[in-house]
Design a protein around this nucleic acid. Structure first.
Lengths: 340, 340
DNA sequence: CGTATTCCTGGAATCGATACCAGAACTGAG
DNA sequence: CTCAGTTCTGGTATCGATTCCAGGAATACG
């Protein structure tokens, strides 16, 4: 008796249609050199059996899994979830689903995830690198790789990201133009590439304007942010504006300023990196640097599929422009110095 | 000359170590019945070649891909992105990456995506079903399936979801207790299961209280929501509270009320389904029904892996309790009628 | 009508890992 | 020393689809 297989195989279709294996294969892939009659018989058999080709077997021979990998720190982060959505959409249009993996910004986790993807022989990878330690893995893998949001430390892989330095610099200059002179820069994790670039952009703008530099580069959570802000709102280090380097930090800063009863923008100005839902609805609406997330992600995915389908291996860094979205949180009242 | 393969295969390791294929396989999987000496030699060869087993080949023989599928309407939706993150975390702990697919709530898209996952022979699937039309596909597939957030129309697949009816009912009763009498229910897509359940819960509460029923069940975007709200704020259909059935709708309603200069909660109360970032920071903070998203997602993933690893096929519906988060948007001032 | 082409078709080797089988090497008991 | 029982090992069939190759059928052309 025949062993029950969960799915019918190509050979079952062949037998049912009374043809050879090769013929069925030809029917599935385009149908070149198959007579109409046979074609019809085979197609009928496929229908009847509900045959679904086994991609594993196919890719074993053909060396193509039609699957790409995506490694992000966390999909729960709205920035990366938007990106993941956009990437999946592009991938789907090319007939490749996405193997999703989260690194949590941990090098060891990243390594595990990449290994797992390599063992599944993905055709290409989109990676938000958190560490340069996994270089050898990727070099040997030799599939196209596109880095997203951050470059691979010290390695010229193709990269697509926003202009972190420029965005932060423009943002800070905007604050300065609006008349703020003692600006605090708040970052969540000073070790991250994006943070570093933004802090650098901010710092250069401050330096060029000859203003004092204040920074809190490790305010991950609400409590530490609150401490930091309180400290800078009294004493001699008193600041008159806050530049937040990331989404969540901006939101926290807003909450804290509000709790402390600090008037925004008249007492203290607020400017955030990354737009967020409701930024335009808060009181006052928050001025932010907006990154074209979907654009960045889509571009990265397209580069990857260009490599996969047209064989042009992507190189170099694509930096997408970011823009300042002027809202009310840094000085509507300073109308005379309006900067637009 | 030997053809250059992108990755060394098991046989290459075997040759290098001077042993047979079976021996290498044994070393990789646990190493039973292998002498220490051979084991060491093989391991060395693996290191030297940077050998990575090919999961495709392995699963061809072993009928296990160690990969699960996840189909959600959209990962950009914060609800589903949180869920996806939680599911990936559970899957990773079990050594299975996640094949991510988006259905956009389109039956045809859903079908394509499921087909694609089946062809990749996923071991199991977590699905947010948007249509019952793809039943035959799934039945034939015969892998464990867990539905998430919505049940499969008319089919007793295992399902994990929040108590939509109960949550909406409790929310509405809360509004009523607070003294609101003319409550408008706003939904984004009346055809969705979750919407229907919530509307039903709301409606039943309204009916039991003997109050008039107002509803706008197709306010997808800002414009239509704005129209609807304006209409209900004047004329004889004038309402005194709004119950929003979904995240985005709540945010829109908040924006609109604010633009119209309507005082919340004194003129109009506002209550939303699904908590969101900043809900506690708006003015007033928004009272919401909070679903345990991560809990629901984790539970669904666990059910799936129980099926995969312990063979207990999941059945039945798991309904998780939701809770009301009391904030200020529906009647702090009605202190005398406080309901907790 | 014979011979070139073109069109179709079945069969077999192949991809990489696993599982089984047979046999070799070793152990210990009698 | 023999024989049974472990422990270890290499070879081979297998999973499901593709890709050759050889050859048969059909058509075209002189």
């Amino acid at each position: 008796m025949k062993k029950a297989r969960p799915f019918p195989a190509l050979i079952d279709v062949a037998r049912r249609a009374g043809v050879g294996a090769g013929t069925v294969s030809r029917v599935i892939n385009g149908g070149q050199y198959v007579s109409k009659r046979t074609m019809a018989r085979v197609q009928e058999a496929i229908e009847e059996l509900g045959y679904q080709p086994n991609v594993a077997a196919r890719s074993l021979k053909g060396r193509r899994t039609k699957t790409i990998g995506l490694v992000v720190p966390s999909v729960a982060d709205p920035f990366f979830s938007l990106a993941a959505g956009a990437i999946e959409a592009v991938a789907r249009d090319h007939g490749s689903p996405v193997l999703l993996a989260q690194s949590e910004n941990l090098p060891s986790r990243e390594r595990e995830q990449i290994t797992s993807l390599i063992q599944r022989r993905i055709d290409g990878l989109i990676l938000v690198p958190c560490d340069g330690g996994n270089l050898s893995l990727l070099q040997q893998a030799a599939f196209p790789l596109v880095c997203f949001d951050r470059p691979f430390p010290g390695q010229p892989f193709a990269t697509v990201l926003g202009d972190n330095y420029g965005g932060a610099r423009a943002a800070t200059e905007h604050l300065i133009h609006r008349g703020y002179k003692r600006i605090l820069c708040m970052a969540g994790d000073g070790k991250l590439f994006t943070s570093q670039q933004r802090v650098r952009g901010h710092r250069d703008a401050i330096r060029d304007a000859g203003l004092p530099y204040f920074a809190e580069l490790e305010v991950q959570d609400y409590a530490s942010a609150s401490d930091a802000l309180r400290r800078h709102l009294l004493g001699k280090d008193r600041i008159d504006a806050v530049f937040c380097i990331k989404n969540l930090i901006t939101m926290n800063a807003y909450k804290i300023l509000r709790e402390l009863g600090v008037e925004v923008p008249s007492s203290v100005g607020l400017l955030g990196y990354d737009d967020f839902e409701l930024a335009d609805t808060l009181d006052p609406p928050i001025t932010v640097v907006r990154q074209p997330v979907v654009g960045i992600a889509t571009r990265a995915a397209q580069l990857l599929f260009d490599a996969l389908e047209k064989g042009k291996h992507p190189k170099g860094t694509t930096t997408l422009k970011v823009d300042l979205v002027y809202r009310g949180s840094c000085g509507e009242m300073l109308a005379s110095r309006r900067y637009t």
